[in-house]
Simulated assay, not measured.
Amino acid sequence: MSKYDHLYEKTISSQPIYDGRIIKVKVDEVLLPNGNTAKREIVNHQGAVAVLPITDDNKMVVVRQFRKPLERTIVEIPAGKLEPGEEPLACAIRELEEETGYVASQYTPLSSFYTSPGFADEILHVFVATGLKKGESKPDEDEFVDVLEVTLEEAHALHQSGEIRDAKTVVALFAWENKMLRERR
């Protein structure tokens, strides 16, 4: 028995709606703590990893990529979904090299967070990658990206202009800035 049991929503029924390559969607009917029922639309996702790569000359490696749901191109840190049974660190190593061509000598966990817990169970694991060496990128056949190296100031300008707008990259940007501020002390 947990001290938060009074908040629990018991699933009464679950209706699968969509079973895709990246997500599954279902609608659950739940019993609320007050005895009423409600519907919950839920997106199931395997989970993902993002990498904040920092070069030896203190630049962040990012990719510019078209995102169909937004109908625009944005700038992001490298990221990708976990394969079934894959460890987050292995995914981080794979995604960094696939998207950017870089390999890192050190990966440090930064944070793990739920991307949108109001409707999705996706968890995103973020790593900082250092000791970078440039290699050959190997993007997926349906993945087209431009690789950029940006300073902290350039990253902030990309954020201000709206080119950096996704949560993982905004979190990484401010974590990187915080790290640099701590190192200056």
Results as ranks from 00 to 15, higher is better:
Ser105Tyr: 03
Ser111Leu: 13
Ile12Met: 09
Glu83Met: 11
Phe113Asn: 00
Phe119Trp: 14
Pro53Met: 07
Asp140Phe: 15
Trp176Asn: 04
Ala167Asp: 15
Phe174Val: 00
Asn36Trp: 00
Gln15Arg: 15
Ile42Tyr: 00
Ser116Phe: 01
Ala129Trp: 02
Arg185Leu: 14
Phe174Gly: 02
Glu163Asn: 14
Arg185Thr: 15
Glu97Asn: 15
Arg64Val: 04
Leu132Trp: 03
Met60Gly: 06
Gly135Val: 02
Phe66Pro: 01
Val150Pro: 11
Phe66Gly: 08
Asp56Tyr: 04
Glu97Tyr: 11
Ile54His: 04
Pro139Trp: 06
Tyr8His: 15
Gln46Leu: 09
Ser13Asp: 13
Asn178Lys: 11
Glu163Lys: 15
Glu141Trp: 14
Val103Thr: 15
Lys138Met: 07
Asp5Thr: 11
Val171Met: 08
Val128Leu: 12
Glu71Leu: 09
Asp140Ser: 12
Ala38Gln: 12
Glu95Ile: 15
Ser137Pro: 15
Val126Leu: 13
Ile74Arg: 04
Ala175Trp: 00
Val145Cys: 01
Val171Trp: 02
Lys81Ser: 14
Thr55Phe: 10
Glu86Pro: 06
Asn58Gln: 13
Met180Ser: 11
Glu141Arg: 00
Tyr107Met: 03
Ser14Glu: 13
Glu86Trp: 04
Gly162Val: 07
Ser137Lys: 05
Asp56Val: 07
Ala120Val: 00
Gln106His: 15
Lys179Pro: 01
Pro117Cys: 04
Lys168Pro: 05
Thr55Gln: 06
Ile77Val: 07
Tyr102Glu: 08
Arg185Trp: 12
Trp176Val: 06
Asn178Leu: 14
Glu149Lys: 07
Leu82Phe: 06
Lys24Ser: 12
Leu52Phe: 10
Val43Pro: 07
Leu7Tyr: 08
Lys26Glu: 14
Leu124Gln: 08
Tyr107Thr: 05
Glu149Trp: 02
Leu89Ser: 06
Lys39Val: 05
Pro88Ala: 11
Ser2Pro: 05
Glu149His: 04
Ile17Gly: 11
Ser111Met: 13
Ala172Asp: 03
Ile12Tyr: 00
Leu70Ile: 14
Arg40Cys: 01
Gly35Pro: 08
Ile22Gly: 04
Ala92Thr: 00
Gly118Ala: 11
Gly118Val: 10
Glu95Cys: 09
Ala175Met: 09
Ala172His: 07
Glu177Tyr: 06
Phe113Leu: 05
Ala79Tyr: 03
Ser105Asp: 14
Glu87Trp: 05
Gly118Met: 09
Gly47Trp: 07
Glu163Trp: 01
Ser2Trp: 07
Arg94Gly: 08
Ile74Asn: 08
Glu136Ala: 12
Thr169His: 02
Gln46Ser: 09
Lys24Tyr: 00
Pro78Asn: 06
Met1Trp: 10
Lys133Met: 13
Thr108Ile: 10
Glu153Leu: 10
Thr100Gly: 09
Glu95Leu: 04
Arg185Met: 12
Asp142Ile: 11
Val27Pro: 07
Pro69Asn: 00
Thr73Phe: 01
Ala120Asp: 10
Val62Trp: 02
Ala79Val: 00
His159Tyr: 15
Asn44Arg: 13
Gly135Arg: 01
Lys39Phe: 13
Lys59Asn: 15
His125Glu: 04
Leu31Gly: 06
Ile23Gln: 13
